[in-house]
Design a protein around this nucleic acid. Structure first.
Length: 476
DNA sequence: TCTGGGGTCCTAAGTCGG
DNA sequence: TCTGCCGACTTAGGACCC
């Protein structure tokens, strides 16, 4: 999808169409998640610190992400992709590979282009947003094609033309080449894909290691046989928070770690998984990051067990100077079974030299502490309260004025623009933040009555040969 | 006002058991 | 019994992606 989050916000808020829109964290340490194409003209791009974006584009609209909205649009798009093939591999909310051969939906360039055109029309009709399509014989080339196609376009890479097409491109074009690898290669005199192809596999392996060097050499020739894989099992679950101001108080650090452990376990349980290795992540005041991990005797989804493992790991970390970010994660995931828990408890009693029936930590065996009152929130100003109750960009409903969204809040007031997807740009009104007629609301669908695509695509003649993949763009 | 959050994969060093 | 080798596993960090 093209500039996905920003495009979705523009579709939801008619007054923002054609205007620079930046979606991301609005706190003092936020970064840009997505900038609309209008904002990109000011030099704003993904992963840029929000403060820098504001300097470059002071008049842009700045919004926090609304994942519930993006997920619902994503579901609609993925449903369409699923009609093309049983093999759909989502990369994110707004990007996926589709194996058209496995779906027998296309067997040559002409039929691939036809299905690509139909797909783009379908996405536009159902979601109101534009997506770009890359068609090629492998995932790597389909991805490159979709990058070239955007915004709002389609690109096909014909088999046999890969080598010539890739040769002049910068090494960064290839998947897996980020800033560090590109720098490494540049110091060795390689800046284009052609340089990689000519360097030879042995040289690349020497520079980058066996796995990376080998795969890069193959990719430089356009060779990539990674299959499209549907249904990937998650391998880890983690949560992390960056604090607006560095934490110095050791007690506070400890309570934050416990909160994160609880949140991590909630996510773990929602996924009906358990995990065996607990990971603590600490980013210090100087941005240096370290991780500490501990592997348990067996998988767990007990919040007390994860909390205490994380707390033990914290003991081994020096936090003097301040903590910028804390994270807690769990890896070594297993499908949860009750037996795992009992085995874990018995094993720990044995390891602690405790007889059966003696519980080391009485409170740890229950979940009574889950959801308990957190550390008291510090004194919070009216501004922060208003911003939390009325986050910029979120939907609201007013008893007499109808559906709208929060344009801003402060000084006891909240400013709302009354408009909705499909309406004309709306009027702005201001209310007291405790106005009883004003309530938070769920996002409205971007297209009120989407056309019926339940019989799309019309079946094509079965074919034996030809491959295709399609990707849609997200973050350029 | 410098640098989010949620992941994946790879490498390298150390430990441990056979 | 001592030594060496090998593979599996654990831990930490780095790079990359969206």
């Amino acid at each position: 999808m093209d500039a996905f989050y920003a495009s979705a916000e523009q579709a939801a808020k008619p007054s923002l169409r054609g205007k620079p829109v930046v979606v991301g964290g609005l706190g003092p340490r936020g970064v840009v998640a997505t900038a609309s194409y209008e904002a990109r003209r000011f030099g704003v791009h993904s992963a840029m610190p929000m403060a820098q974006a504001r300097r470059l584009a002071p008049n842009a609209a700045y919004l926090v992400p609304r994942f519930a909205l993006y997920r619902s649009v994503s579901d609609q798009v993925m449903e369409l992709l699923g009609r093309l093939s049983p093999l759909v591999e989502p990369l994110s909310l707004d990007e996926a590979f589709v194996d058209l051969e496995a779906g027998s939906t296309a067997d040559d360039a002409a039929s691939a282009l036809k299905i690509g055109r139909q797909l783009r029309e379908a996405i536009e009709a159902v979601t109101g947003l534009s997506g770009s399509v890359g068609l090629a014989g492998s995932k790597m080339l389909a991805k490159i094609a979709s990058e070239e196609a955007k915004p709002d376009g389609m690109r096909l890479i014909e088999p046999g033309t890969e080598r010539e097409l890739l040769a002049p491109m910068p090494v960064r074009t290839l998947p897996g080449v980020g800033p560090a690898t590109a720098d490494h290669l540049r110091r060795a005199g390689m800046t284009t894909v052609n340089d990689l192809a000519e360097a030879g596999e042995a040289e690349l392996v020497r520079l980058l290691g066996k796995a990376h060097g080998g795969s890069l050499h193959r990719m430089a020739f356009g060779y990539d046989d990674r299959p499209v894989v549907a249904e990937r099992d998650a391998k880890s679950v983690s949560v992390e928070d960056t604090f607006d101001i560095d934490l110095h108080d050791r007690v506070r650090v400890r309570t934050e770690v416990e909160r994160l452990a609880d949140r991590c376990v909630q996510r773990l349980r929602a996924a009906e998984r358990s995990g065996r290795t607990v990971v603590l992540k600490v980013r210090r005041y100087d941005f240096s990051t370290l991780t500490r991990s501990e592997t348990l005797r067996g998988p767990t989804d007990d919040p007390a067990v994860v909390r205490e493992a994380a707390a033990r790991l914290l003991e081994s970390v020096d936090t003097t100077g301040g903590v910028r970010l804390l994270g807690v994660g769990v890896t070594g995931l297993a499908d949860f079974t009750q037996e795992d828990l009992f085995a874990q408890a018995a094993g720990e009693r044995a390891a602690a030299g405790l007889p059966d029936g003696v519980e080391e930590r009485p409170e740890a065996a229950t979940e009574s502490r889950e959801g308990r009152a957190r550390a008291e929130p510090g004194p919070e100003g009216a501004e922060q309260l208003a911003a939390r109750r009325w986050p910029a960009g979120h939907d609201v409903r007013h008893d007499t004025h109808g559906h709208g969204w929060v344009q801003g809040s402060g000084v006891g007031r909240v400013t709302v623009r009354f408009e909705e997807p499909g309406s004309a740009p709306g009027r702005v009104r201001t209310f007291r933040i405790d106005d009883p007629a004003l309530r938070p609301a769920d996002p409205l669908p971007l297209v009120r009555e989407p056309p019926d695509y339940s019989s799309w695509p019309a079946s094509l003649p079965k074919s034996r040969s030809g491959a295709g993949a399609s990707g849609t763009e997200s973050r350029p």
